[in-house]
Write a protein that binds this DNA or RNA. Structure first.
Lengths: 202, 202
DNA sequence: TCATTAGTTTTACACCGTTAAGTAAAAAGA
DNA sequence: TCTTTTTACTTAACGGTGTAAAACTAATGA
């Protein structure tokens, strides 16, 4: 192993170490508690060290942001087994909502927080891939005669906004305006059922 | 004017002074720049003074949060002039989206940010009033034969999530995954048109 | 006139992200 | 092997944050 290789390896190991610590604090104690100093303490290095491997704090969250998308896309891929396009579309929303429920903090980071966004274009590769998946399902539906004369851009945005709206209201605790006895999960499930029933009829 | 009255008056004046400064900084430079020290500097008082009139920073943003709801409800009231319930429902979404576009920061504070939420129940009075408005429009639609056998809770959540989803993706710059040439406003308008067309058919 | 009180400021604490200077050990060159 | 350079890391500092307690000042009441 050459020296350059070893250095490269060390660099990657350190980045992974930092990311592991950041992820664990983030998932356990939330974004606010995930400070450079807390991460440094967890890996038993000084705060300054982190800046040798990440340009800034946001770069760490950008990395977690991408990890979130990889997880989500992984879940989406199970949908390839749903043969009928319309059923696949309906299942898409359920997988999306399930992901948001199971990974509240990741979802927040990916679709709501400002922190992991802004810098470059690259981060949107992941977002685009996820969106492309939805668009393709819609096109498959159109090939079967659904959604005639509807633009895939507008239609995909409508569907995405529907599921994101529910997930975002859930993540940011805006469902309190509904009677607690209904239950947030039931609220989301039934609202989504109404939505897909409408979709199917159109 | 009694002493107690004068003191009460002074207290209210100071709160208003602080809120005016906070609002102006918030709308001009964003949440991050709206610090206690910046507000204090603007009103030419010391930072400590602010804590004589507000328990904590979040209480200031809670007050702005309520102001946002008053503004939104004000807009909603213009909908009373739309006679047909279904047309009123369709217009509701447009007014909602227009409000989000015209008052991005207020919308963010009201429906996305964590800062103005959590403490008491009182703040949800406003949110509930806005939601009740939507629910009533839906009931009016049902009285005219629409949305048969649909629960107003679930249906209102679906509609709210639809418009919130679009507004939230817009506020938090997640529409970049769509080609810029489409235009965010056009994207939202057309997606909403698709949505209401679907709604009408069901 | 003196004591009390209300309104405000000052100071301090414990954090934060980030950077620059300093240090010690490892690697490279002679 | 000895010296120099590079590498990896730490320490200390800057300017910022929210917030609480102590200190101060001016008006009020007795």
């Amino acid at each position: 192993m050459s020296i350059a290789q070893r250095k490269q390896r060390h660099r990657e190991d350190m980045r992974e170490l930092i990311l592991d610590a950041a992820r664990s604090i983030f998932l356990e104690k939330g974004y606010d508690q995930t400070s450079i100093r807390n991460i440094a303490e967890k890996i038993e290095y000084s705060p300054g060290t982190i800046y040798l491997y990440f340009k800034e704090k946001d770069e760490i969250f950008h990395a977690l942001h991408e990890e979130g998308f990889r997880r989500m896309i992984g879940k989406m891929e199970t949908l390839q087994h749903v043969f009928d396009p319309m059923e696949r579309l309906k299942a898409f929303g359920r997988v999306y909502l399930q992901f948001a429920n199971d990974n509240k903090d990741f979802y927040d980071l990916m679709f709501i927080m400002n922190e992991a966004v802004d810098h470059e274009e690259s981060k949107w590769d992941m977002g685009s891939r996820a969106l492309d998946f939805l668009k393709q399902v819609i096109r498959d539906c159109q090939a079967k005669g659904h959604f005639k004369n509807q633009d895939v851009e507008y239609l995909s945005f409508m569907i995405w906004a529907q599921v994101h709206g529910m997930a975002a209201l859930y993540c940011r605790d805006r469902c309190q305006v509904y009677p607690p006895k209904i239950g947030i999960i039931k609220l989301m499930e039934n609202a989504y059922t109404y939505f897909v029933n409408m979709l199917e009829k159109s």
